[in-house]
Simulated assay, not measured.
Amino acid sequence: MVTRLLPPRIDVCRSVPFTPLVRAGEDDGYTFEGYGAVFNSPTRIDSWEGTFDELVAPGAFRKSLTELIPKFQFDHGHHPLIGSVPIGAITDIHEDERGLFVQARLGRHMLIDFVREALTPPDLGGTGAINGMSFRFSVVRDEWRDRNGKKIGSEGELSRLLYGAEPERLPLQRTLLEVKCAEVGPVVWPAYPDTTASVRSNMLIPNAVAARRLHLLEL
């Protein structure tokens, strides 16, 4: 019997293009503001996991933020020089009507200054080259529905549909109802070329898992 893989629920990343909220004349240039996630914005996931739409529901971060303040990292801690050291400290993080609002104070270090310049819009003296935010999370509660709004009742049904059964019910929609957020921060590559909102980070897919998924699709 072939075991089919479902989308991961632990240590997942999502990224969103964003415009940093920088106010000329109101700060010394070391305060970062932006949105790490946008609510109710369906995103097409089209990868080794299958093809489906995903959105984050309002309230998804609420419980997590009362338990743990996420770390503020650059590129998920994978920069070869900065590494996993946070590039700043979060001073305010909360949900509002738009999404997950993040305010942080950047550290004062030469390497972090390079990131700060890339985050600052050109009209304020920067390059604006970095325009993405991402958050790392684990799924606590989610909900799957087919294109007609019918709720997916079991993992078996979900697996069959993700592997292409009953195409008339596709694409599926996944709603993230509650997540535990461990880390948030700016990223260089916020999205795949054919997306306009949050996407899954391909760095989270172990080669062995990806190879197995491809093998299963060929069966």
Rank of each mutant, 00 (worst) to 15 (best):
G83C: 03
R174S: 07
N40C: 06
V184S: 07
M203L: 12
P7T: 01
D27A: 06
R160S: 15
G153V: 15
I82H: 04
N207I: 11
S64N: 05
A37L: 03
L106Q: 04
V209P: 04
P190V: 08
P70C: 01
A129G: 09
G59Y: 04
D194Q: 12
T66F: 13
G99S: 10
I82E: 05
E168I: 00
V188I: 13
T31Y: 03
P206I: 08
W189I: 15
L124H: 08
H78W: 13
L219H: 15
R98F: 09
K71R: 14
V184E: 10
F137R: 07
G125Y: 03
D146K: 04
L100T: 00
Q73M: 10
G99W: 05
R145F: 07
G29A: 00
D146G: 06
P7L: 06
P20H: 01
D194S: 12
D75Q: 12
K71L: 15
D96P: 02
P86Q: 04
V102E: 05
V187D: 07
A60N: 05
S201T: 13
G25P: 03
A210Y: 05
P20C: 00
P193F: 10
G99I: 07
R4I: 14
F18T: 11
E95L: 00
F61N: 00
F114Q: 14
P20V: 04
E157R: 13
L21Q: 04
L106N: 02
S84R: 10
E26K: 15
I93A: 00
F74D: 05
G34E: 01
R169N: 09
A211Q: 08
T195G: 12
E218V: 04
V209I: 06
A191E: 12
T43S: 14
E157T: 13
G83I: 03
R147K: 09
E157F: 09
M133T: 08
Q173H: 13
R44L: 15
T3C: 12
I69V: 13
E168P: 05
L21C: 02
S64M: 11
A165G: 08
F39L: 03
V85F: 12
E143H: 15
V56I: 10
S201E: 12
S47Q: 07
L162C: 00
F61T: 06
G126Q: 00
N40G: 07
L100E: 03
A211N: 06
T195E: 12
